[in-house]
Simulated assay, not measured.
Amino acid sequence: MSTTSEQIVHHARQWIGTPYVHQMATKSAGCDCLGLVRGIWRDVIGTEPERPPAYTMDWSEPQGEEWLWQAALRHLRAKPLEAARQGDVILFRMRAGSVAKHLGVQTEIGGAPAFVHAYSGHGVVESPLSSPWARRIVARFEFPNEEAV
């Protein structure tokens, strides 16, 4: 069975309302942005390919290492930034010079782009992919098909 962008968006939206809880990945109980993507993976593909180690809120910043980006490259398919599609996993750099460490799933493209993400203080929400968010995107990925896992 093939994973479709519609399945990814459907499952991402099912997480809306989940509280923000650092390091969790449980629908309705709590998750952070990585936990959201991990949960969607489990929903559409199955067992996670790797479990992240315990991490702090500032993980990878002191070392300046792109750990989240490297993990995404291990398990997702990288694609050009300009090739936006529903269901894409998008990686954000929140501040210039810092490591990229916020994730979301693109739910709408075109004139009113949007994405679902777990946002500290807000939980899992669907937000407009406004210019302030869009300019922070540093990478874009696709979930693999189940056959490729």
Score class of each variant (00 low, 15 high):
residue 105 V to R: 03
residue 65 E to P: 00
residue 77 R to C: 07
residue 66 E to W: 00
residue 88 D to Y: 10
residue 69 W to Y: 09
residue 107 T to N: 08
residue 78 A to G: 02
residue 99 V to C: 06
residue 86 Q to D: 07
residue 70 Q to Y: 05
residue 85 R to V: 06
residue 72 A to K: 00
residue 69 W to D: 10
residue 66 E to L: 01
residue 94 M to S: 12
residue 88 D to H: 07
residue 83 A to S: 11
residue 92 F to L: 15
residue 91 L to F: 06
residue 79 K to W: 03
residue 84 A to Q: 13
residue 76 L to Y: 12
residue 69 W to G: 03
residue 98 S to W: 13
residue 71 A to R: 15
residue 89 V to T: 15
residue 76 L to M: 10
residue 94 M to H: 08
residue 87 G to C: 09
residue 67 W to T: 14
residue 75 H to M: 02
residue 85 R to T: 11
residue 74 R to F: 01
residue 96 A to P: 08
residue 106 Q to A: 13
residue 68 L to P: 00
residue 78 A to N: 03
residue 71 A to T: 15
residue 94 M to P: 08
residue 98 S to T: 13
residue 93 R to P: 05
residue 105 V to P: 04
residue 83 A to P: 02
residue 86 Q to V: 13
residue 75 H to S: 05
residue 95 R to L: 09
residue 78 A to R: 07
residue 67 W to H: 09
residue 69 W to N: 10
residue 94 M to Y: 11
residue 97 G to M: 11
residue 82 E to P: 01
residue 104 G to W: 12
residue 77 R to E: 12
residue 94 M to F: 06
residue 94 M to I: 13
residue 94 M to G: 08
residue 67 W to F: 11
residue 85 R to A: 12
residue 96 A to T: 08
residue 104 G to A: 10
residue 75 H to A: 03
residue 79 K to Q: 12
residue 83 A to H: 13
residue 77 R to S: 07
residue 61 E to H: 01
residue 61 E to A: 01
residue 73 L to K: 12
residue 68 L to Y: 00
residue 85 R to D: 11
residue 84 A to H: 12
residue 86 Q to S: 09
residue 69 W to V: 02
residue 62 P to W: 00
residue 97 G to H: 07
residue 102 H to A: 08
